[in-house]
Design a protein around this nucleic acid. Structure first.
Lengths: 354, 354
DNA sequence: TTGTATGCGTTATCAA
DNA sequence: TTGATAACGCATACAA
């Protein structure tokens, strides 16, 4: 049985409230005699007292816990994000409770439920994100919440993410400048903020360059590596395959790498590759992969700052922050001559421009 | 203000205990009139009732939460481990609270403190692990605890990890079979279980092959990539450099890769590389890295099973489980002729055999 | 300087 | 079939 204030009070020969004051009320100076302080601390130490956070939380209506939900903690991007969030919050005196929704809306929903029931002081959510019904319900609560990475354009809620449209444009423009015109996009989970905005950037870049969009070159349905593997296989055996692939996430790129390797397709000689997300190992892949880097630490900092603001003062305006992505050029893109391209007939539907 | 049972009771015109029974006491069949059940459920739904897990936990002395502490969640090994643990525990009805100790014993200690105060039902700890004073204190509590990956040989506590000695021997024996005799070991954090056992395996393999241990070839002081980078630089500029490097962890290997790249040292042509840990991306590195794979999912399964056993019946014997590692041979090791080796004079202290 | 009493939201015991 | 009441451990308003 864990030790309680009562046990200490008994041993020290004082009342429970005195014990409470000595042990936890460091802020308010309750002028307590040195002798009592000594006695109480001594007893607490001897008995190995640990405050019961449940009781305290119940009483104070405050848990000093922040709930964090991410779709896939084994994705290096989210692992890094969680680590950064934990670091930022720790210095502010908050612990985090992490849930991995495994890209499953049902798990996300039950995570949300658990965290609310646990009465966390706030929420940082990277939603699976095809549907914001549940998130909206939480938003309408007084529960402070900030969305990261996976947000909802249509939902008025505090959020911080990288400028995905810009990121995609950076990537695709770079490919175009290197002479590519048949550029495929292997997307993540359709309907999610990250995916739709990245897709949007891809289309916009092509459009700006006057390149018609070929719907056969847009494939994929989740952010996992197997998706990258499958869709790369598909793209490679197209009668008129792309000269470059842009993947919507680091795991997808890994799958693309695997497929190319299996098919003895060399990168960048036979096909070029650029990916969104820039994990630590990107430089050491074979070849080093050109990638769009997100400012993860900054995302975490902003998210925590915004959450903190909302916890302290829930009535200020909601904000949507977009941070700048960065293109890290490595060795996965080949420059190709524009004549070579033009000689390739577009045998997929040329009328499709979206 | 969150809705409570009282609020529902008032609206439904029944007592608090009735509400509680209707909403939460699914197990015991308390024969309650259908009409009451309907009224209560209706009111609960309308008001948006959420149980207060703090109050419930306080009352029931049970939180359905498991605390998890890992040294570095951005390390793919631990990210994967956390994900597996979460999955295993979720189906058993437990949530997890994750702490990243950032390889800092002080943070680990405060994480331990927080989790105990939160009255989690159990603990899964991958300790930073140079010192088990704090862990021992917890062990002597009635708090169920299982250690994973980073254990303590000298401490009698439930634990599950890979057979590190065997893993290292697998790696080093392989290098020896490929003709290597000057094999360096870049270690992780000295004094930790994972490191010492891996070092032990390294030494044992060399010893078995009759190769004297050259202390200049053992370097390194933590599991981060920068350590791998620095120590590889150091090893490369030795007057008699190693022909192969064995790294104690995946991040270290990444650093080694970076250093080699910077120095224009080709792997495996100029130097061979094998690493402990086998992250998903290992196959796609340049070159694909030969690695020792740990059965992460199995570690998580075993850990959860053991923890569950201890929660249900705290008085059974403590167990230490070792799981089998696996050598995944890829392209980072070159076969070298033994004559080439023997022609290299050992100009580092030849008398040092440990 | 310290103690008493109350309530946080829930569940469990007992009684009706 | 339902209700009153106590208790979980703590913090705090009020009293002394």
């Amino acid at each position: 049985m864990p030790v309680t204030l009562k046990d200490i009070a008994k041993i020290a020969g004082v009342s429970v409230s005195t014990v409470s004051r000595v042990l936890h009320d460091n802020s308010k100076k309750y002028t307590i005699s040195d002798e009592t302080i000594l006695k109480v601390k001594e007893a607490a130490k001897n008995l190995g007292y640990r405050v019961n956070a449940l009781a305290r939380g119940l009483r104070q209506n405050k848990t000093c816990e922040i709930g964090v939900i991410v779709p896939d903690i084994s994705n290096p991007f989210f692992a890094e994000l969680v680590k950064s969030l934990a670091g930022e919050l720790r210095v502010k005196g908050y612990n985090i409770i992490v849930f991995d929704s495994d890209e499953d809306p049902l798990i996300e929903q039950s995570a949300l439920k658990s965290l609310i029931e646990k009465r966390v002081d706030g929420l940082v959510v990277a939603s699976v994100g095809q549907d914001f019904t549940q998130i909206k319900k939480v938003r309408d609560t007084e529960m402070p919440m900030v969305m990261v990475d996976r947000c909802f354009d249509e939902l008025d809620v505090d959020s911080v993410s990288v400028d995905n449209v810009l990121g995609s444009m950076l990537a695709v423009n770079y490919l175009i400048n290197e002479g590519h015109r048949r550029i495929a996009f292997i997307q993540g989970l359709p309907g999610t903020y990250a995916n739709e905005t990245r897709l949007q950037g891809y289309k916009k870049a092509l459009h700006n360059a006057g390149i018609p969009i070929d719907k056969h070159l847009i494939a994929g349905n989740d952010f996992r590596s197997f998706n990258g593997y499958l869709k790369t296989k598909y793209l490679l055996k197209l009668s008129n395959p792309p000269t470059a692939i842009f993947t919507a996430g680091d795991l997808i790129a890994l799958g693309a790498l695997e497929a190319c390797k299996e098919n003895n397709v060399r990168i960048p000689n036979d096909i070029s590759l650029v990916t969104f997300d820039d994990p630590d190992y990107a430089s050491y892949l074979s070849p080093a992969v050109t990638a769009i880097e997100q400012p993860i630490k900054k995302i975490a900092q902003m998210a925590v700052a915004m959450l903190y603001d909302r916890i302290s003062d829930s009535r200020n305006e909601r904000r949507k922050i977009l941070l700048e992505p960065k293109l890290n050029i490595r060795n996965s893109v080949a420059r190709i001559s524009s004549t070579a391209i033009k000689s390739q007939p577009a045998n997929t539907d040329p009328n499709n421009t979206r």
